[in-house]
Structures are given as structure tokens and as C-alpha cells.
Design a protein around this nucleic acid. Structure first.
Length: 438
RNA sequence: GGGGGCGUAGUGUAGCCUGGUUCAACACGCCUGCCUGUCACGCAGGAGAUCGCGGGUUCAAAUCCCGUCGCUCCCGCCA
């Protein structure tokens, strides 16, 4: 007998069906027993009358525990009184496929939310809550829409190695591991390898994959392993081409998410998916600093934004410009990576940008420096030793086109999109400085 | 890495400031019984924690002090 999904019960009124899911609630009464069954499509009521012929099954139901996995077979009847969809399944047969221990470590029904720690320890139970399922449905829709857009624009999907012989970027710290008889490192970013695809003539590439950072960062928006969304495109005229691409790509992605899951997101998280207007506002760093100063905020580090500054700027852009996004441009060279291209006329200023969404940094991007001599000079200026990155520098010795791209935090996007306070909420299995399990 | 907060039955909290008739209360869950259809079902009864761990102060510590582990937030850093 084929399984019927709970959302489809209404289409089977009068028929016998098989539904499979987890017991959310048991209301065991004298004459009749009610079970609320949950599958990945919704909640449905299974009703068992107490009778002589069903006595054994009635016993089984009396002994059932919440969150047990069951198969229920019975006839679907319409009953407007029933709050789960106005239909119920009159149980003829019930099989306990996997019994649950009576003492659950957290409340799957959502009536009382457990501590973050308990929820992460019992992540598989936490994920049974329908809102959590929705998060990953949204993630799937997001990635799918991104890929649709890229493919339409002629991009190739690449998978760069996560094991590396040297650092891919200065700054962020590396996880070191044993690689036979020598050290290796986990990739902090696919940066060098996506640029390699430009040198290889792939024209445009993207990658959605893991990145690792050994920073002991204790914030709601950092993880030691996260999914990085990266793209790189050739033959650009400036970083403006990259920003123009990104805003349209995001507009498309959000419009797809809204049409597919907008109402669900609204009811589960109270968040409206707003499809942003393009172009997004662009603000050069000096203007940003002027605005923040006017609001009485002085950033810690000269010429760069701190988290409080990002939040303030987000508020300003929302109020004054009516937009959730803002590109910050014209970052000074001393706070950007050596491979960011600098302005020809004002070399202290880079062709790099960040994208802030509701005050959270979701992207860093730039036009890259593709001219070997200049790139080497910039690396030297940053005090980098050239030997470990020579393989990268070589990309630019044999005819590399002008190019640029960005890195985008998938979980950060979901966090902002779904109004979640913490990246752990939107990460399937979170990895942090002190979290390696489950 | 620096700073703040937290850690009490299966779960969520109260008690801690003003140590001792509270060796711990309430709610949810769990167990037992009752209940003509419930829908956060209801009613009655019951079990369950030596108060993260270690040490100290004291006649006496969940309650004060120190250490430690874990969580969390802010800063730094970034996706």
C-alpha cells in the first residue's frame, strides 16, 4: 500500500490510506483515542474508537509514547470539527516502527523551548520541530534559485579542494592537520581556486562549499565551519559589474523564495520576504563614516566598520533610503586583502566592497588585481612571504583577464531572512570553537 | 584572545542579593486510575533533582568565596 502524505489526506476522503510519521500528541479517552501524527508535510489526526475487535490496538495506543515513529492505516473521513484540516483517519491498524523513550530531552511540540545547548546536543530532535524543517526547505530553495540564475548567466560550478598546502588568505587563522608526514590546512575560502578558474579561461564560476576558520569567535554570526557561497567572473570593467550582478542574483533568489515559501516563512517566523529593488544603494566608506559620526558613533578601527557601525548603517539605510541592503565601497587598502585591486588615481582606495543586509555583513567582494607585478608589490606591502603563495601568483603570469567576485555567507543570509538571532539556528549541524558534536 | 551573564527533577522556571523550620517549589512531560470526540482534552493520585564539577569559609551552603568545565552575550575578527 502506497504511503499518503498528511497534506494530501483531504484528497482521499472515503478511501483507506497509510500515513507514516511521528506521534505528537496522544489523547487517550475512555471511548475513543486521538493521535496527532506529524510527517514532513503537516499534522493529521488519527482516531481509534475503543471496541472489542480493536482491543489489542487500543492497548498499543495506550502504551504509545510521544515522538514514536508509527505507521497508521485507516479510512479517511471528513469531519469539520477536527482542527487539523477537517479530516481524520479512522485507525484500523497501527504499527509502532520505532518507539520513543517516554522521557524526551526536549519538547518537540514547541510548547516550551529548551536551552540552546540542550537543543544542539539533541539536534535531531530539535530538527523535528516544523520551523526547523522549514529553515532547510528555505535553504534548499535559496541554493536552487542561486544556481538557476548562475546557470542562466553561463556560469560553471566548481568544487575546489578543502585540503591545502598553504594559507589561502592572510588574516583568518588556519586549522592545521596531519597530511601523511607533513602539515596541511583546511581551506578558509575557495578564493585562490576560483581565481584560478579565471586564469584557466572558465570565464565565470561559482561554488557552494565549506570553509573553515580557526578563529575563536564568540558571536551569534560566526562558526568555525560554514557554507561559503562564492563566485568569480572575468572580463569585468570594475567591481561595479560584480555588484550589479550580485544585486540581480539576490533579487531573483529572494523572489523565488518568496513565491515558493513566503507564506510559510511569514507564519513560522513573522518575517516578510521583501524582494529588493535594484540597484541597491551604494555608499563609499567616507560617506558611511560621516553618517556614523553624525549619529555619534566612532568606529574602533580607522576606515573600517565595526559591528555596531554596521547595525547603525543598516538602520540609517532602512530609514533614509527605504532599503534593506547597502553596498559599502571605497574601503581603504590597509583594511583589505592584498589581492583587491586599487583605484588607479587614488591607490589608497580599493575596488572592494561589502554588502550589508539589515546591518549584517553578508558579502565581501572586489575586483581582483590581475597584473602580476602590481599584485606582488601589494603582497610585499602587506608583509606576506611570497613563497607559499607563489602557485597563486603564477596564475597572473601567463595572461589572466580582469576579473572579480565575492564570497557570501549562506547561513548569515538565512539568519537575516528568517529573523533568527543566531547562526546556530539556521545551521544544520553547528561547528564552533567548543562545539564538535553531534 | 579580553569583558559581562548563566548552569537547580526528563524539559522550562522559582528559590540565591537578605546563608539555617523548603535537603528544594511551580508548570509541562512521565506513571497509575477515572473520563461518550478530544484538539494546549479534563479530573484525582504518584514517582522523579543530594541544586554543573572540585575545593574553601561557616556550627550550617542551591544560597558566600576561589578554581574548573560548559553555555551565552558584547568586543576583537570575519562569510
Amino acid at each position: 500500500m502506497a504511503r499518503t502524505l498528511i497534506k494530501d489526506l483531504r484528497q482521499h476522503i472515503g478511501q483507506e490510506v497509510k500515513i507514516q510519521g511521528w506521534i505528537r500528541t496522544i489523547r487517550d479517552q475512555k471511548r475513543v483515542q486521538f493521535l496527532i501524527v506529524r510527517d514532513h508535510t503537516g499534522l493529521g489526526q488519527a482516531t481509534a474508537e475503543r471496541s472489542e475487535s480493536l482491543a489489542a490496538m487500543n492497548e498499543t495506543i495506550s502504551a504509545l509514547t510521544r515522538e514514536s515513529a508509527v505507521t497508521v492505516i485507516g479510512k479517511v473521513v471528513e469531519n469539520p470539527v477536527v482542527k487539523t484540516g477537517g479530516v481524520e483517519v479512522l485507525v484500523r491498524q497501527l504499527v509502532v516502527e520505532g518507539a520513543a523513550d517516554g522521557q524526551l530531552p526536549l519538547d518537540v511540540s514547541g510548547a516550551q523551548e529548551s536551552n540552546p545547548e540542550v537543543r544542539l546536543n539533541w539536534r535531531f530532535l530539535d530538527l523535528r520541530r516544523p520551523e526547523n524543517l522549514l529553515i532547510f526547505q528555505v535553504q534548499t530553495a535559496v541554493e536552487h534559485a542561486m544556481r538557476e540564475y548562475w546557470l542562466r548567466e553561463g556560469f560553471l560550478e566548481i568544487h575546489s579542494p578543502k585540503l591545502m598546502g598553504s594559507a589561502s588568505e592572510s588574516g583568518a587563522e588556519l586549522f592545521e592537520l596531519k597530511y601523511f608526514d607533513r602539515p596541511a590546512y583546511l581551506a578558509q575560502s575557495p578564493q585562490f581556486y576560483k581565481q584560478m578558474a579565471m586564469a584557466a579561461g572558465f570565464d565565470r564560476v561559482f561554488e557552494i562549499g565549506p570553509a573553515f576558520r580557526a578563529d575563536p569567535s564568540f558571536t551569534p554570526r560566526h562558526a568555525t565551519e560554514f557554507t561559503s557561497v562564492d563566485m568569480e567572473m572575468s572580463w569585468i570593467e570594475s567591481h561595479e559589474d560584480v555588484m550589479a550582478f550580485e544585486e540581480q542574483w539576490l533579487q531573483y533568489t529572494l523572489s523565488r523564495v518568496k513565491e515558493q515559501l513566503g507564506p510559510q516563512i511569514r507564519s513560522a517566523f513573522g518575517a516578510d520576504v521583501i524582494v529588493p529593488q535594484v540597484p541597491f544603494p551604494r555608499m563609499p566608506m567616507p560617506d558611511v563614516l560621516r553618517i556614523l559620526t553624525r549619529k555619534g558613533h566612532t568606529p574602533e578601527r580607522k576606515g573600517d566598520l565595526d559591528p555596531a557601525g554596521e547595525r547603525l548603517l543598516g538602520e540609517y539605510v532602512a530609514q533614509e533610503l527605504g532599503h534593506e541592503f547597502v553596498f559599502v565601497t571605497d574601503y581603504p587598502a590597509d583594511v583589505r586583502a592584498f589581492y583587491h585591486m586599487r583605484n588607479a588615481d587614488t591607490p589608497a582606495v580599493t575596488k572592494g566592497f561589502d554588502l550589508l543586509w539589515k546591518g549584517v555583513e553578508v558579502t565581501t567582494g572586489a575586483q581582483r588585481e590581475h597584473r602580476y607585478e602590481i599584485l606582488v608589490a601589494q603582497a610585499r606591502e602587506k608583509g606576506l612571504s611570497l613563497e607559499p603563495i607563489q602557485f597563486y601568483l603564477d596564475f597572473f603570469k601567463y595572461g589572466c583577464p580582469p576579473h572579480g567576485g565575492f564570497g557570501f555567507g549562506l547561513s548569515r543570509m538565512l539568519m537575516v531572512l528568517l529573523n533568527q538571532p543566531n547562526i546556530r539556528e539556521v545551521t544544520y549541524i553547528y561547528r564552533g570553537p567548543t562545539r564538535l558534536y553531534p
